[in-house]
Design a protein around this nucleic acid. Structure first.
Lengths: 216, 216
DNA sequence: CACTGTGAACGCCTTCACAGCG
DNA sequence: CGCTGTGAAGGCGTTCACAGTG
């Protein structure tokens, strides 16, 4: 159910924050929540929340607030979390390995189904619930499995080449831990998870000590 | 050298992208670069780059472009990378451990100087170049070392409590891998590195296949 | 002549205030 | 009466076009 109108990117970026928060609120057994209270929890202005949600219809009840479970599910559907997203990991180094094992705990809607590495020493190793496969098998795997998402945790030098190959195989979304800007076609989405970027942004705010600012 | 005027957050968010790119360009031995060419490399519109840089003075030469090394250093200074940033890691689980070991390779301006964990089994273990210390030692360590940055890689349940403690000890910037929204005072900056957020945002764009969008 | 620096126009997100409903 | 949904106002970053300069 793609949406006709163009939703602001900033809205989309916030939806996962709401979603994450609603999960916790649900666990607390709370059934209704106002944009006010939710706002405090996620650190976002209530009117922003209402505007964000309004893009997708009337999700709340006037005079009452939002039903926690209903809203959570609605946002889930909007984000596309009503289906399962298989994804692969390229690069089974230290970071890649950790990501793979870490994933077990959290990913409810995202399932790591394959790990690939160039290094023959790593191939065959068991990492989390997968076994590392040689990159040569990657293309076929992506295509037969209809995989759309890839995590990229290879060294800078290889990242662009790998990204290019991923795209060629049909990958449409890349979460990249590589410390370079990837060049990809317009219909492919890249998110940058290189944490040095965030550290540097932190450094800026700590250096220029105004009373900024707030996360995400 | 804090800046008087309020620089747009979006500008600050892009500076590390420029910086990262300029490092690579420098390695290629290129000496001058135009906003045009840099724009292609970082995937950002040239006029945005010029506007961003203009906040900090006249960094380029009209008719010529930007001197790569000079610009790199200028951005480095702006971000506060002319000094070293020691930081600590809290949480020596799978992810924390990987981050610690990964850090060796990249961090030029950020140095991991301490790792803390509650679990006695993990305390004493060697991770990267540090040894895991008990959380009880954390407060003293932060204060005597005048540490300002912390990476947070503890389970969701503990994250808020730990964050609170970090702030109390004088931490001003947190890079959080915990899957919750941290509540911190206004003068503390939090960046969210929980990759489930990014995966969900990816899922949105893949579900609502317009010809969006672009990374970072 | 090439490319930066910049004021002005534009467009978009956020803020605000209140109308609409339960 | 409380809180959402929403049009209108405002603020802010981006885009544009060109003046400025080596």
């Amino acid at each position: 159910m793609p949406f006709r109108i163009k939703i602001p990117r900033s809205t989309i970026d916030r939806l996962p924050l709401y979603y994450r928060c609603l999960n916790i609120i649900e666990e607390h057994g709370i059934e209704e929540i106002s944009s006010q209270v939710l706002g405090v929890r996620v650190g976002i202005d209530p009117s922003v929340i209402r505007k964000d949600l309004a893009w997708f219809g009337e999700l709340g009840k006037r005079g009452v607030g939002y039903n926690v479970i209903y809203l959570k599910n609605a946002i889930g559907r909007i984000l596309g979390l009503d289906k399962d997203w298989p994804f692969i990991l390229v690069g089974a180094g230290k970071l890649g390995t950790a990501l793979a094992e870490h994933n077990q705990k959290y990913g409810r809607h995202f399932h790591l189904v394959g790990i690939f590495d160039r290094d023959p020493d790593k191939v065959g190793r068991r990492v989390g619930e997968c076994q590392v496969s040689p990159v040569e098998d990657m293309a076929a795997f992506i295509q037969t499995g209809d995989i759309k998402i890839a995590m990229l945790a290879v060294p800078a030098e290889e990242a662009q080449k790998v990204a290019h190959e991923l795209v060629k195989c049909g990958i449409k979304g890349i979460l990249s831990y590589a410390p370079i800007t990837l060049s990809v076609p317009e219909d492919v989405v890249v998110y940058n998870a290189d944490y040095n970027l965030d550290l540097q942004r932190l450094a800026y705010y700590l250096t220029n000590t105004s009373q900024f600012s707030w996360g995400e």
